[in-house]
């Protein structure tokens, strides 16, 4: 019972934090686009994003589990975009950019395996 209440409270806090972040973003965005948003809109958007993140986290967990891992890696995240080609392009570009940055960074982080583009499983 007490743990239930605790999670509920935590959920409230997380949602409040998300609300704040989304609100900031919407404000900035509406300045750029020259529109306005009602507070209701921001609240609903927060709810939508919160639900989407909850679903996403469950998906990612399942993907990692399916691969027999405990850690979610970039391949799992790429799977999120499997139904949307445009989104996949966006995410692939982001991934490539991250890899490029990592490659140029100090010490060239030894993450060769995780950088595999998906298929060809690097097995020892």
């Amino acid at each position: 019972m007490t743990t239930d209440a605790a999670t509920e409270k935590q959920e409230e806090e997380l949602k409040a934090a998300l609300w704040y972040a989304i609100g900031k973003y919407v404000d900035e965005e509406s300045l750029n686009r020259n529109l306005n948003a009602t507070p209701h809109f921001i609240a609903s958007l927060t709810e939508l994003v919160y639900t989407q993140i909850a679903n996403t986290s469950r998906d990612l967990e399942s993907f990692a589990k399916h691969a027999g891992r405990r850690a979610v890696n970039t391949d799992d995240v790429m799977l999120l975009s499997r139904r949307n080609e445009g989104l996949e392009t966006v995410m692939r570009e982001k991934l490539d950019e991250m890899k490029a940055r990592e490659g140029r960074g100090p010490g060239k982080a030894a993450r060769g395996k995780a950088s595999g583009k998906g298929k060809g499983k690097a097995r020892p």
Binding site: Q10, E11, L14, L18, Y50, I53, A54, T56, S57, R58, L60, E61, A64, K65, R70, A71, V72, N73, T74, D76, V77, M98, E102, R111, A114
Partner: peptide, 17 residues
């Protein structure tokens, strides 16, 4: 938020991910 959503508390997420 992601960690809150994980059902298994052992699950972790890499930084790049």
């Amino acid at each position: 938020l992601l960690y809150h959503g994980f059902e298994d508390k052992d699950t972790v997420i890499q930084k790049g991910a």
